[in-house]
Write a protein that binds this DNA or RNA. Structure first.
Length: 749
DNA sequence: AGCACGCCGACT
DNA sequence: GTCGGCGTGCTC
């Protein structure tokens, strides 16, 4: 038998050694090593014994076998948590296509910052005079490094370790004698920066209604037993958070910890405070505003058992709790749970895998579950819990009406405000209540187009229109290209060329001309620039400093405005005709959320949905607040067209500076994939009639944005009812001989 | 990070 | 010549 080797990452906190090293497995350890295991290895010239983690196995090393050393021993009583996270990284690499290093960096992002947690200081233990005498001695000896060090030490009693080694360039070898002579000592300070220090826990009990109690007892039973993934479908205001908290209480009582994932945009002060009030100092929070050091402090607190609950966005999924018992994913339908960078993992699937490893449970919650999750609940893969009434009994559901914009046009109304919406706005203002105007549109910045030929001004490096910024320049959102607004149309030479302004700006201008006395706030990227801009606008509106708030998606996510009684959705179908097969789902979710903003307290709410396609099921179902109806339409469409969740879909993106190379490589992959189109396990009884494992290849075709930064982009899709054949295909592609001018990326849905 | 190697100035 | 500190580079 040939020799066995392991790929190892060495547990040294430094970028210079932040890579894979290979070691030989000695005979006595053959078969005893596994992924993620902590081992002892000789490292460096002096063969100092260090810790390392196994991240892979191989029989043929990529390094001169002569120089490869042997694994020494297995670290028996290592904390299993790192091993578990490393195994999770391996799973992510398999499923989402990335290198092991990329996956590890996603899962163990705090590795580099572990040291700053234990900040080290060099502290002078003798008087300033004594230090000065010593300094004179070393000056005479002309030992420059030691002189530099003593000078600094005389000046300041305490010196941070990094300052000494990096800024002063005094190596440990140079100051070690001083430590031994007792001139100074090495102190470590564990200063945990708790961002919520000082909040006192106020034990709060809440009365659960019948639906909430049913959900809690069902989930608790699942947790005590098989720990099946649960989906909590509860309408806005049904009190999902109380259910989560009851379940968390149960989990903590059993000595386990919980992670609560929340989309970054909904991670508001209010939400977080509710958890603090309930669980006090045992709660921690991470978000993107936290510095890397603070974040790793919080992860360290989790690892050492000082907290029980971690709240945060997608990345909080990798909190190193030693005894994880529960992962809650709130607003599980949010796109923010899908990573945009390699590995392009999905938080739900990854959470389920992590919980499988840790014998923990996943709870998904949403007012508008993703079609994918609801499908799995329907198939019995998840347990489903429904909450159909609002927790506060006095608050009532808003009344919703649809206005057909085509009728408005026929009646001679060319504005984007229907007569009905105008009328209701007027009434709302008269009652001194507030209104939200929601523009359901992705690209908020306007583009410039020619009135004569209709051509939009495009980026010379990408296949997209340039957008106008507030500074008057034209910019490309993909590559950053910037230019002045041209005087003549680049394609036909006409001088009738103009911008349309941003959608929200236009709406704001129109409202103020209709109601000159109304106070209007606009919320888009322009008005929320700078830190806290976001919250500042929302707070101002909540305080009643304005009557009308105009904005995009941002205004409908997780904010309560008790005085809002009117919500106007200006063009419901704007999101219906873009964004691939999920457009219908996105539209339904946005409309439902927007409608849910109306009349959340005792005041009755009114919602107006304006649409050019009022009979589309996404619009109709949102208007009647009927999730089921939406779902059955949507799943029918997905089944017919072989889209997820009925089928698994793998998309491949080929990018190259040479258009032909990208297209050719995509074609080559399609050709190779042809062999997967037949049944893989031919002859099995199951294959009779239905080929669950047949792979369907679509493309290659130009990507939606066919060129970015002068790179051409082609896509190829592979669909299959089973996941396994797709993973097999992915493996085959990874082993293909590749044109070095072409890059590729996987995406699994 | 931490260790050894090799350069370079100081001193028997 | 040789001793020893200091900067540089490498670590499977």
């Amino acid at each position: 038998m040939s020799k066995q080797y392991v790929n190892v990452i060495v547990d040294i906190v430094h970028t210079a050694v932040d890579r894979v090293f290979q070691y030989e497995v000695p005979e006595e350890l053959l078969g005893k090593l596994s992924l993620g295991m902590k081992i002892r290895i000789p490292f460096g010239r002096g063969n100092t014994v260090r810790d390392g983690y196994i991240i892979g196995f191989t029989e043929k090393p990529d390094y001169d076998p002569e120089k490869i050393k042997q694994v020494q021993t297995v670290e028996e009583d290592a904390m299993p948590i790192e091993g578990q996270l490393i195994r999770l990284a391996a799973w992510m690499k398999e499923h989402y296509g990335s290198t092991m290093i990329q996956a590890l960096k996603t899962v163990l992002p705090m590795k580099k910052k572990m040291k700053p947690v234990q900040k080290k200081y060099l502290v002078r233990t003798v008087s300033q005079e004594a230090c000065g005498e010593l300094l004179a001695v070393y000056r005479k000896k002309k030992q420059k490094a030691r002189v530099r060090f003593l000078e600094a030490l005389m000046e300041d009693e305490v010196l941070p370790y990094e300052v000494v080694t990096q800024r002063l360039r005094v190596s440990p070898a140079s100051f070690r004698p001083f430590l031994e002579q007792g001139i100074c000592r090495l102190d470590t300070e564990e200063s945990y920066r708790n961002p919520v220090r000082g909040l006192l826990k106020k034990e709060q009990t809440f009365l659960l209604n019948e639906e909430q109690r049913a959900a809690v007892s069902g989930m608790t039973a699942s947790w005590d037993g098989k720990k099946e993934t649960c989906l909590l479908h509860g309408i806005t205001g049904s009190g999902k958070t109380e259910v989560y908290m009851e379940l968390i209480r149960h989990v903590i009582k059993n000595g386990r910890q919980a992670i609560v994932l929340i989309p970054e945009i909904a991670l508001t002060y209010q939400t977080v405070m509710r958890f603090y009030r309930q669980f006090g100092e045992r709660v921690s929070i991470v978000n993107s505003r936290l510095s890397a050091g603070e974040k790793s402090d919080q992860f360290e607190r989790a690892r050492t058992g000082r907290i029980d609950i971690m709240i945060g966005p997608r990345s909080a999924l990798f909190t190193p709790f030693p005894n994880l018992g529960l992962i809650i994913i709130d607003e599980e339908h949010e796109t923010a749970y899908k990573s945009e960078t390699v590995p392009k993992y999905h938080a739900i699937e990854t959470a389920i895998e992590r919980c499988r490893m840790a014998d923990a449970m996943v709870v998904l919650g949403s007012a508008t579950p993703s079609a994918s999750s609801y499908y799995k609940a329907q198939n019995g893969e998840y347990l489903l819990f429904q909450m159909r009434s609002r927790a506060k009994e006095e608050s009532v559901l808003p009344s919703v009406e649809i206005v057909d914009l085509r009728e408005e046009l026929k009646a001679g109304n060319r504005t984007i405000f229907s007569r009905r919406l105008k009328e209701l706005l007027k009434e709302t203002l008269e009652r001194k209540e507030q209104a939200l105007l929601f523009l359901n549109r992705r690209g908020y910045a306007g583009f410039i187009s020619c009135r004569s030929c209709g051509e939009a001004v495009k980026c010379p490096h990408c296949d997209v229109s340039l957008t106008q910024h507030w500074d008057g320049k034209l910019k490309c959102h993909y590559c950053g290209y910037e230019t002045e607004i041209p005087k003549f149309c680049p394609s036909c030479g006409s001088r009738y060329i103009a911008g349309f302004g941003t959608g929200t700006q236009k709406v704001e201008a129109m409202v103020s001309s209709m109601f000159p006395e109304a106070r209007i706030l606009r919320m888009d990227t322009d008005t929320t620039k700078g830190k806290g801009g976001h919250d500042a606008v929302l707070a101002a509106f909540a305080d009643g400093k304005a009557d009308i708030l105009v904005g995009t998606q941002m205004i409908v996510k997780g904010h309560d405005f008790p005085n809002v009684t009117l919500v106007g959705i200006l063009a419901a179908d704007l999101s219906l005709h873009s964004g691939g097969y999920e457009a219908g789902e996105r539209t339904f979710q946005l409309l439902t959320q927007a409608a849910g903003r109306a009349g959340r307290d005792k005041l009755p709410g009114q919602v107006v949905i304006q649409s050019y396609a009022p009979s589309h099921y996404s619009v109709e179902a949102a208007a009647s607040q009927d999730y089921e109806s939406f779902y059955w339409h949507e799943i029918l469409y997905r089944r017919l067209l072989h889209y997820p969740p009925v089928y698994r879909m793998m998309s491949l993106l080929f990018t190259s500076k040479e258009e032909t190379a990208a297209e050719r490589m995509a074609g080559k992959v399609k050709e190779m994939a042809g062999e997967f189109e037949g049944p893989l396990k031919a002859g099995t009884e199951e294959a009779e009639g239905q080929r669950h494992d047949a792979v369907e290849i679509i493309g290659p075709a130009k990507a939606a944005v066919s060129r970015i930064n002068d790179s051409y982009r082609y896509v190829l899709y592979a669909k299959c009812e089973e996941e396994q054949p797709l993973l097999a295909l992915k493996e085959k592609i990874e082993q293909m001989e590749w044109d070095r001018n072409v890059l590729y990326q996987f995406d699994m849905e």
